[in-house]
């Protein structure tokens, strides 16, 4: 009995409390709009935003799917590319010196500055995908590299003592040891992929092309359709939450047996 109660308390605190706060904030917002009679083109009430979401659902949810799919495709490509390059770099110092500067240049150049150029060379959908890929790539590369490089020295020596092949060292030691850092990189990359996709969609939207959520935001902005802007913004948040929650669950699933980072709530 007491065990069940002890388990219930954190759930109550962690899930219900934020929802109550959210409900209160929305109610206050609704009341403020009603009380001061704020016009919807200045600040739409939450109820109007919800109604807009329902009314424009066909167009908005189609855009949500486009943005979410672009971000996830870019994340998948960034994962493959980032892990592959991290493995290559971990095999040789020369590779690291040759390739890392380019990865860093890409990382420090703001994606919003690259997007217009990519839109010149590529179709809008492709340009958005490439932008999202570029921003998600670096954190996955950097974190996986760090994970592969920071394996316990004594364990490496143990594998040396038993004459392990490079392949055995990778599969049995370095890859599992790098998983926590890899997943940290993946979670950052997931959030950034969405930002990259949104930034590129905004740039594409400025050119009057596109189908994603950010395009809907700029499109609605031109028409001063503020409720729809808010509705699209809510869906962008939802996309971010879906990506973050999905990756957190994946990371937890992979690490919960042994790694402290995934065990916080259990002990």
């Amino acid at each position: 009995m007491s065990g069940a109660r002890a388990k219930k308390t954190p759930l109550l605190r962690d899930a219900i409390l934020p929802l109550v706060v959210l409900a209160c904030a929305l109610a206050a917002w609704e009341a403020a709009v009603y009380f001061w009679d704020i016009p919807s083109y200045v600040l739409p009430a939450p109820s109007l935003i919800a109604a807009t979401l329902v009314k424009d659902r066909a167009i908005l949810f189609a855009s949500l799917i486009v943005t979410l799919r672009t971000a996830l495709e870019a994340l998948a490509l960034a994962t493959i590319g980032g892990v592959a390059l991290a493995l290559l770099i971990s095999r040789s110092r020369l590779m690291e010196r040759a390739l890392m500067p380019f990865a860093i240049v890409l990382q420090v150049t703001p994606i919003i500055a690259i997007a217009p150029l990519l839109l010149v060379y590529l179709a809008p959908a492709e340009a958005v995908l490439v932008c999202a890929f570029l921003v998600a790539f670096f954190p996955i590369l950097a974190n996986t590299s760090l994970g592969l490089a920071s394996v316990d020295r004594s364990l490496v020596e143990l594998f040396d003592l038993y004459r392990a092949s490079p392949w055995q060292k990778l599969v049995l030691l370095r890859a599992p040891a790098a998983l926590p850092q890899f997943f940290a990189g993946l979670r950052i990359g997931g959030g950034l992929a969405l930002i990259g996709a949104i930034a590129a969609e905004l740039a594409a939207g400025a050119a009057g092309q596109g189908a994603g959520l950010a395009f809907r935001i700029s499109e609605a902005g031109y028409r001063l359709d503020i409720p729809r802007m808010f509705a699209a913004l809510a869906l962008v948040s939802l996309a971010g939450i879906v990506i973050y929650a999905g990756l957190t669950a994946l990371s937890r699933l992979a690490l919960v047996r042994w790694h402290e980072s995934a065990r916080g709530l259990e002990d």
Partner: peptide, 22 residues
């Protein structure tokens, strides 16, 4: 070694099996 230096993700059997596996 001075520390046990076990593979934290592997159970006791797998840790002891490691040299034979290699």
């Amino acid at each position: 070694f001075q520390e046990a230096t076990l593979l934290p993700w592997a159970d006791v059997f797998a840790n002891v099996y490691l040299p034979l596996r290699l």
